[in-house]
């Protein structure tokens, strides 16, 4: 590659520093833009709520109550916590054959108080 014949450690180091810095600069610029946009929207939303509900305190209270995400997060947390509390079982099923000798005590015929009638 002739194009890179004169590229040495100095140039590579410089490219690394400039490259990494440019990534930061671009993304920091985006932070400022998004923050500005976010605060403008939040102000607008709050002003709308205040106009709807009459006072700042009422708007804030309404916002706290209607925060559906918070409710969903609490519900999920409770569900996961409760599922964690469940007893662990061995999950092994065994079927053991048990020999039961005949006895009047387990005989069906002796257990019936009234014999069925034959027709």
């Amino acid at each position: 590659m002739d194009k890179f014949a004169n590229v040495g450690w100095g140039e590579m180091g410089l490219m690394t520093i400039i490259g990494f810095s440019v990534v930061f600069v671009v993304l920091v610029l985006l932070i400022f833009i998004m923050k500005g946009m976010g605060s403008a929207f939040t102000r607008q939303k709050k002003a709308k709520k205040v106009a709807e509900l009459g006072s700042v305190a009422a708007a804030e209270e309404h916002e706290a109550i209607s925060d559906q995400e918070l409710v969903a997060a609490i519900a999920t947390a409770l569900k996961l916590y409760k599922s964690d509390l469940h007893d662990r079982e061995s999950e092994t099923l065994t079927i053991n054959r048990i020999t039961r000798a005949y006895s009047p005590w387990n005989s069906k015929i002796h257990g019936l108080t009234q014999l069925p009638e034959k027709h």
């Binding site: 140039e11 590579m12 180091g13 490219m15 490259g19 993304l27 985006l30 923050k35």
Partner: peptide, 28 residues
């Protein structure tokens, strides 16, 4: 939006490897 900073910092991997590859003799 502060998350952008973390996204930028994680690009350290790209530039560290860029220099690392040069140390192993790869072309730029």
């Amino acid at each position: 939006p502060k998350s952008f900073l973390l996204g930028a910092a994680a690009q350290l991997g790209i530039f560290a490897t860029f220099i690392g590859a040069y140390a192993l003799g790869f072309a730029p």
